[in-house]
Design a protein around this nucleic acid. Structure first.
Lengths: 247, 247
DNA sequence: ACGATGAAAATGGTATACCACTAGCCTTCA
DNA sequence: TGAAGGCTAGTGGTATACCATTTTCATCGT
């Protein structure tokens, strides 16, 4: 984690980048409340920087969807509604499914072995009840799968969504007790990868993400009705469940 | 198209937004060469604004991938390599495929009718040889499909990629002669939509985008070796048609 | 004559000052 | 006493001035 001191000392190159990273990390780590205002002068003084780079950093964060800039009202950390979570999670699942299929074709045996190693690391953290590391490695695995797809744009999009969901995912993970099913799903994913079964791996991943995120969305807003079609489900289902119309 | 005068007159709210939109449009319309530097003082004077809002606008465009900001070197309009095009187009096809499936479930008959109307408008432009409108309506149809998915995040991602590819798509369309196949593909897409066959529509769309974009990628950089697996092809194809091998 | 080095000009990065808008509070009038 | 309108403080938006880095051109030395 970057600290205040890491910023504003050497003006080498990219103060705005540092400020943006700092704020991004803090927002993502949920150190700011959703809806909280970010007054420029105050923040600038706290970070020991001028308003100019801070403002530019806020603009970047705004385009990343982490903060919202209201006209003449300044920046507030953006609130991610349960519906937002479901929508973003759906896109995330679509992207990871696509990544999975590419990975099955492209990955070297070495790559797959490394993923398996990570998987076992995660399993270790799991049986230890080490939430922190379980969470971190889990994220790492998903990132790695997307990275191995070899498609930079895919990875960029994935990272974009992950940043927006990280805060939510973190809190969700803190609360959620049902690691067991998640682990089982991961086992299935790895098995499909080992067999290089693109279709199966894609479906497993999508199913996994769907469950994980829907579970959270329900957590955060218990009164959210679970009848929604933006949650993840296998791509090619031909009438498996009625679309349960919302809108 | 916004003009210089539209900017820098009323300082009501959002000069940076206007500057960003202006630059975005000009970049997307290919009025700037890829790789061209955007000197802040010069541009600011041309746009009749100060450097500050211009810089913030450039930061936004950078986060949108339209310009690149080199450390201590300033902003240059980003060059989209043929590989970039293929990667982005692949993601685009994945997103539109997902959108298609959602649309088949969610869209009202009215929505579909409207899409068909647009389709016939496009066909009219097609047989007239009206490239400008053909291009515009084509874009409109794809946008509409994604919008009808009802998933805002999906739409956002789609828009993000489209902005990056718009310039390329525009030039490609200018050069490409093979509208006929593209039209046939659109017919197939519409037929699948009319039948609300999510799977088929998704595949048709993905196939369509794959062909369209690969055609361009080859056009722009003919010496680009086609040995790459990130190009678009139907997701779940179980050997339905040789993916028009560009790999 | 060619290359290397240094100085100057240009460009980006940062800070600060000034202006416009918004909001909250106080005063005044009904 | 309550509501409405204006005034003031605070915040964001914009412009400009200053500093650091980079690049290029000229000059000097080999």
């Amino acid at each position: 984690m970057t600290s205040l001191d890491d910023i504003a000392q050497t003006s080498q190159q990219g103060l705005v980048t540092k400020v943006a990273s700092y704020l991004r990390e803090h927002i993502v780590m949920d150190h700011f409340q959703p809806g909280q205002r970010l007054p420029e002068r105050t923040l600038a003084e706290e970070l020991q920087v001028s308003r100019t780079p801070l403002r530019e950093a806020l603009k970047i964060l705004a385009s990343e969807g982490l903060v919202e800039i209201l006209p003449n009202r300044g920046a507030v950390v953006s609130d991610v509604s349960p519906l937002d979570v479901k929508e973003k999670a759906y896109v995330l699942s679509v992207l990871e499914q696509a990544a999975a299929e590419l990975v099955c074709e492209k990955a070297t045996d070495r790559d797959i072995t490394e993923l398996q190693a990570l998987h076992y690391e995660m399993k270790a953290a799991f049986i230890r009840g080490d939430r922190q590391n379980y969470f971190r490695i889990n994220q790492e695995i998903h990132d790695r799968i997307v990275a191995l797809s070899g498609n930079r744009s895919l990875r960029e999009m994935h990272g974009y969504l992950c940043r927006q969901l990280y805060r939510v995912r973190y809190l969700s993970n803190e609360k959620s007790e049902k690691w067991t099913t998640a682990m089982a799903e991961h086992e299935a994913i790895m098995a499909a990868l080992e067999a290089r079964d693109a279709t199966r791996m894609g479906q497993e991943l999508r199913n996994h993400l769907g469950k994980t995120w829907f579970k959270f969305a329900a957590n955060e807003n218990p009164d959210a009705q679970p009848s929604d079609q933006t949650d993840a489900k296998p791509t090619k289902q031909t009438k498996e469940s009625p679309p349960a119309d919302e809108q």
